[in-house]
Design a protein around this nucleic acid. Sequence first.
DNA 1: TGAGGTCATAGGCTGGGCTTATGTCCAGCA
DNA 2: TGCTGGACATAAGCCCAGCCTATGACCTCA
Lengths: 311, 311
Amino acid sequence: MSSTAPPPSSLPHRVPDLGAMVLLIAVARHGSLGRAAREVGISQPAASGRIRSMERQLGVALLDRSPRGSRLTDAGALVTDWARRVVEAAEAFDAGAQALRDRRDSRLRVAASMTIAEYLLPGWLIALRAGRPGTAVSLLAGNSAAVALRLMAGEADLGFVEGLSIPEGLDGTVIAHDRLVVVVAPAHPWARRDRLTPGELAATPLILREHGSGTRQVLDAALAVHGGLARPLLELSSTTAVKGAAESGAGPCVLSELALGEELSARRLVTVPVAGVRLRRQLRAVWPAGHRPTGPARDLLSLTAREPGES
Amino acid sequence: MSSTAPPPSSLPHRVPDLGAMVLLIAVARHGSLGRAAREVGISQPAASGRIRSMERQLGVALLDRSPRGSRLTDAGALVTDWARRVVEAAEAFDAGAQALRDRRDSRLRVAASMTIAEYLLPGWLIALRAGRPGTAVSLLAGNSAAVALRLMAGEADLGFVEGLSIPEGLDGTVIAHDRLVVVVAPAHPWARRDRLTPGELAATPLILREHGSGTRQVLDAALAVHGGLARPLLELSSTTAVKGAAESGAGPCVLSELALGEELSARRLVTVPVAGVRLRRQLRAVWPAGHRPTGPARDLLSLTAREPGES
DNA sequence: TGAGGTCATAGGCTGGGCTTATGTCCAGCA
DNA sequence: TGCTGGACATAAGCCCAGCCTATGACCTCA
């Protein structure tokens, strides 16, 4: 989604579907088309054909077939690993969607801020599912006030918020930190800067999320000390839109570190350090004061709890 | 792929296909089903039906339809962002696969080590495509020696290797560092350790990639000073298999930081610092001595080149 | 040489997803 | 008030991708 290009031969036509990727991964694991077919619940000829058509589509041989089984070619190994990344993203999607579906009456009802629901929660749910398979989780996403409300009303068992303080009436614990970072396209002059002064940041129009987002609040608070609020160059409604605008060189933007994995390692965006501004915010698990989480809520909490040796 | 579970109702059945995700993202961008349909090249009723069936599948309303257009619901916004992650992974897949396909005769022929080809290159190619749309890239993955060979033989224009030194006959520049980290499942005793001594690491059987992998070499070299080579508990052939084994509690493993994004933030795995061991390795771009890259090779190189303000 | 594993090929069926044509609703404008 | 245009929904029909079963070819090992 880095461009608004009208896709002549669009992505889905150039990429095998999820089923094919899952199948390929299964073949890699089992070393056999037939066994992989059984695992994913299709017949051996179907698997054979499916892999074959994937090879045609990609123009690369993926498997060395032999009468004793099938092994990945070098290219196949690479493709399989890329496929795994796609499948992992799909699993996160599934975990999140599943939590979203079970609107009420689930055993564990979680209320979380947007950023946490978006970036962290699906991973936690996958982990939770691995450890406690049966647990049904429902998810409600909203801002800190909404999360607090749900908890106080007994409509959620565990909450996650980002921000500077714990909402009234709740107890909580810090589970992680999130850093806001200033990023620009590699071609932007700031990409060469050793560091920025807070004054410069406050004086420069930035690409931002719309007013009211958590990111925006933290940024405003941090800059208040140094010459006023952040000045918007563009106000966009989704994180991805912000990234896209920054990538295409529209200007600098400020985003949560959590949102920037791929873009940074591909150097589609680069970070610009800012001297002496506190752009860290705490991510907290919260619950009604006095009611320490128990049962599945405790399980989830312990999954997320920060421990000494941190990355 | 974190488990070997036999999928009763498998992932692809629970997750919409790529086309649907792309469509949803387009709807989010345009605020209109019809316009989104046009963008992805299908008819308006097809788009309508497709989104509807996605809502049925997920059990969540994604769109607020009105006679003046469609806006995402809150749940829809979340789902769209998760979908974007899947689509981004698919784009990386596509970029990699495309490079793999154009075996010979491409304008820019890249030879890269496995780790770089797997984790970094697709992102670079997406960025390159954004900046220099027409560039056809071909990719050849292999170990350092193979990369050197290709470059010397004139069969590749630019190479990427990981390791301690530049192969004979090549010039190069460091473009990034890769840290190897020791990770364990959160339940593992080491997860509580403040830090490990190198001796402990050398004395403990680890889950490792098979002999000959770059990761393995660096680890062996680092541990050689402290009581010998790494001792394998399991030797597995893919990074993901190693992660899976570690997650399920089989033991500690050592992996490149690049391979561990999701697992760490979800705390499915946690890192264990090791005192006084040099587990950094350099990632380098290389080319035949004296032949500085030009043209598209230079473009790609400048995309990857490290600059002062690093994250 | 036969048994048991592998993968490939062939033929026939089914259904999901597409298109076109049409209906309904709403807003804005005369 | 009634017309127009844009939005989405519904209906009917078509088509092809992908599946299954059945079978064949090949290799290995006893």
